[in-house]
Every structure is written in C-alpha cells, then in structure tokens.
Design a protein around this nucleic acid. Structure first.
Lengths: 80, 80, 80, 80
DNA sequence: ACGTTTGCGCTTTAGC
DNA sequence: GCTAAAGCGCAAACGT
C-alpha cells in the first residue's frame, strides 16, 4: 500500500499544478476584462474592440498559414 | 486630425495589451497540456485526470453556491 | 439550374424548421418567466427561487459527474 | 408550522414547474442540433446555416450600422 | 489521420 | 446601465 500512497500523492501534485495554472489563466482573463473596461471608460466601444482583436487574430493566422505554405513549396522545390 | 491619430494610437495600445495578455493565456493553456502529458507519461489516464479536475471544480462551485443560497434565504427572511 | 432551386428550397426548409424551433424555445422561456412572476406574486423572492433552481441543477450535474468519474476509474483500472 | 409546510409544498411545486419547462427547452435545443446535423448530412455547411439564421435574425439597420462602425475603426488603425 | 464529441470561452440576454 | 447567468460556437481531445 505504500506505493499506492506515493502514487496518490504524485497524482494529487499533478492535479494541484493544473488547478494552479487554471487559476492563473482565470486571473489573466480578468486582466483582459479590465483592459476592455478601461477602453470603454476612454470612450471605445468594447464590442468593436473585440471585433478588432478577432480580425487581427484571423489575419495573423492567415499570414502564418501562408508562410507555412511557402515553406512547403520551397521544400518541395529543394530551395533551402 | 491630430486628435484622431492620438486616439488611434491609444486604441492600438489597448488592443496590443489585450493581445499580449491573450498570448500569456495561451502559454498557460500549453502548460496545462504539458502537465496532462506528464501525468500520462507517469501512467495516469488523462481522461481520469480531467474528470477529477472537473469534479473538484464543480464541488467548489457548488459549495460557494450553497453558501450564497443560504445568504439569500437569510436576506429574504430579514435575518441580518 | 433546376437542381439549384431544389437545393435552395431544401435549405430554406431546414432554416425555417430551425427558426420555428427557436420560436418555441423562446415561448418556453416566457413561460418560465411567468412562473417566477407567479411565485413572486405569492410572496416568494425570485432571486431565492432562481438560486434554488441553480443549486439543484448543479447538484444533479455533480452527481452524474461523480458517477462518470467512478466509471472512468473502473475503466482505467480494467474493472468490468 | 402547518403554514410553513404548505408554503414549502407550494414553493416546491413552482420550482418543479420551472425545472420541467427547462427540460422541455433543452429538448428543443437538441432538436435544433438535429436539424443542423440533418442539413450537414445533406451537404450543407452547418456554420453557413448558422450564419444564415443569425443574419435573418439581425435587423437590416443594425447590420449596416455595425459594419459602418467597424470600417471606421479599421480605417483609423490602417487595417485594409 | 479524420471525424466525432465533449468541454471551454465568448456573446448575448435577462435581471436588478 | 451594469452585473451576472444562460446559451451558443468553436476548438481541442478522444476514439476509430
């Protein structure tokens, strides 16, 4: 049974690390909310701000996808 | 138009702060994934680990919800 | 173009079924509001009623989640 | 205490009516999901179907107003 | 590797 | 008008 206890402690440690990380994540989400609130206080429409963030994210994704495609072509052509 | 530029810069600053925070959040999500992977490598079933985390979270929520309900009862009954 | 029209009609039919269902759903939401209003008219605090409904739902979820976790354990341990 | 029991029963009845209605609502949500699945099986992209439903729901005025505002912000930020 | 399904985060809506 | 909760959409995770 000693091994079981050791395993239980090990598992507990993993679970608690996960919970700690998720708490941190939640804290950052709160920070994001604060920035939107700050923007709103300065007169910017939060909904629009969210739309901008979404658009820029899509554009960033599209860009790196295009770059990945370019790399694939280069590799296929034996270029560097 | 000077004001517009100033506003544009201010808005851009807010947007970039949000994007920075969301990058951090994504990084932490990756850390969480790593812990699950580490657990799996040590022989723990990831599905079980996730179920434990979820259940503990639900229990924590249920507990504070029960406390809130008690407070609501007391308020509704005019008890301090 | 005949096929296109057929397809357009088929799609329209699906969309309208969805919209009809969502109308029904909205109607039921209204019924729920009515029950809360009725309770309030009989002297029950709506906030308390909502808290009770929420807590009972959470408890039901927690119960079946606990059962699911047990099943997961058993499966992970190769039992049954 | 007789009054308290009567009240408790009355409250219970209201709560259960609410829960019953919410079950119905959930059932209809499931039906909606089924229609989307049926559409998918017939070759329609669910995401597109959802977009159609959403668009039809939106008022034409609100739609063009939101688009105009978004264009203004994008122009201010130099996004195409 | 792909498709399915579930969990998570966001958006929107409703109550206060 | 603001806060909070419910509902929806998406994306990651699991199974095939």
């Amino acid at each position: 049974m000693a091994e079981a206890n050791v395993a239980a402690e090990e598992l507990r440690g993993l679970i608690e690390r996960i919970e700690r990380l998720e708490d941190e994540k939640r804290g950052i989400s709160d920070d994001v909310r604060d920035v939107y609130a700050e923007g709103k206080a300065r007169g910017y429409d939060p909904k629009t701000m969210r739309a901008i963030v979404r658009l820029r994210k899509m554009e960033a994704n599209a860009r790196q996808e295009a770059e990945a495609l370019l790399e694939t072509y280069k590799a296929a052509l034996g270029l560097s």
